[in-house]
Design a binder for these strands. Structure first.
Lengths: 250, 250
DNA sequence: TGCACTAGCCTGTATATACAACCTGCGACG
DNA sequence: CGTCGCAGGTTGTATATACAGGCTAGTGCA
């Protein structure tokens, strides 16, 4: 019996989510069809349909009538995360993104970083500092720590071409994020890097992201107050969101 | 025929949403049961079930097994809006909220406000300025305009007891919100009101809210940078959110 | 070779049916 | 008079079945 009081469609969903988050099913992979699931899981097609339909509503998978069900591409997973990649944001404004890597290296986590990442003090972390520009104008100073064990080949990446955030979500789908937004005065280094005026405040975002069930990266993002704003749009669901078409062709 | 290619469960949902947003169904009202809907709408119970289940997932209604389906109380509608009332936020930190009304009155909308509210220039708007305190410490300077035709009895309210935002959503469920967050330096009036230090930046939120299908209120919210932060938490759905129990007893 | 068509799979929806679990109110029983 | 239990309504889930419509690959015909 195993006293699984959970409904079967829910068990099915969780099983598929598990396969996605541990990498058995990777973005754009095909998910078994309703009939296959019905057969292997021993449920009716309607139950499999409900599981897959809800996974679709929640953004985990993308369904195409007549074709099949595919793991959603989490790279642009604004649906699940509502946290957009700065490069995408700039691109969506029709502008050009560029980035300079100011610093990369491996460090031992100090107490503060270890605490945030739920790691031991002294554990290896990569430290990356990147400045992002929108049409040559610096718009974000990114100061990021990444758990070394999560992404060992981190330092081989060219973060002037792919943003750390986009690369991280390509390594493993990001599951969760916490962020805090504050208005602060920048320290001189950040101020100069962002070419800010004296007395101009910064919008600072501190963001901690989870993957594979644990925090894997922490970032402080500084933006010049006069050239940057965070926008939010809250609409009731139900009127189907325009979902980006993530899958080009399988 | 009316060429309604929309699925019937979707038509049902939209019909109920319409009844909620035009006031036919008010918060805590009972929504017809699945069997009643099946009868009146001429669909099967499963179809009615899907409509009500999705409305529940989307936060429009609250369902209680064995009892019935009820229109959700939008007053605390953080689910739909993700925009929390400052008083609730303070209360959830276990602190005490108080507010002082600095200014109330009726004005003719200038071009800027009229444009934002999609109204004619010169149309009547209420102008409210309130400062909110958390444990006596001023934490938000709210500068709000409300379309007079939306809420004629606006000036009768005591906004030191109920926040304008909470009152507005009690008048009519808020449907949509757009907000922009920026870091700015406060003007002297705001700085003094918020008892801020010289050179301390503000976190400014500009928020435009919709109800009954149109923008009804615009607010500029200033917060002291050193004493305020906006937090966000993005988790994948599917693991059911802890829905506040909105209905005490019917 | 090239094109049209179709078989076959897929999702999307709709229905009837069934049973479980939950809640309320009422009536019977002590 | 109080309390237990049950009847009946409600949601929640599961299944079998059916049909519509989208998409693809491959067959077969010109």
């Amino acid at each position: 019996m195993t006293v699984q009081s959970k409904p079967r469609y829910q068990q099915l969903k969780e099983s598929i989510i598990r396969q996605i988050s541990n990498g058995e099913l990777r973005p754009r992979d095909r998910v078994p069809s309703e009939n296959e699931l019905a057969g292997t899981a021993g449920v009716s097609r309607m139950t499999a349909n409900r599981a897959l339909r809800e996974l679709n509503d929640e953004g985990y998978v993308e369904r195409i009538a007549g074709v099949g069900t595919f793991v959603a591409d989490f790279k642009a997973a604004s649906h699940v995360l509502e946290v957009r990649n700065i490069a995408d944001e700039i691109a969506s404004r029709g502008h050009r993104h560029s980035a300079d890597v100011l610093e990369t290296g491996r460090e031992a986590a100090d107490a503060a970083i270890a605490g945030l990442l739920q790691a031991e003090e002294g554990e290896g972390v990569f430290h990356i500092v990147v400045v992002h520009r929108e049409n040559e104008s610096p718009i974000q100073h990114e100061n990021r720590y990444v758990l070394a064990s999560f992404a060992p080949d981190c330092l081989q990446q060219d973060f002037s071409r792919i943003t750390p955030s986009a690369w991280l979500s390509a390594v493993s789908p990001l599951q969760e994020a916490r962020q805090v937004v504050r208005a602060v005065m920048p320290d001189p280094v950040v101020r100069d890097t962002l070419q800010m005026n004296d007395g101009e405040p910064c919008l600072m975002v501190k963001r901690l992201t989870w993957a594979r069930g644990r925090p894997v990266s922490f970032a402080r993002l500084y933006h010049p107050g006069e050239r940057f704003e965070l926008t939010g749009h809250y609409a009731p669901p139900g009127i189907r969101k325009n979902r980006r078409h993530l899958l080009t062709k399988v």
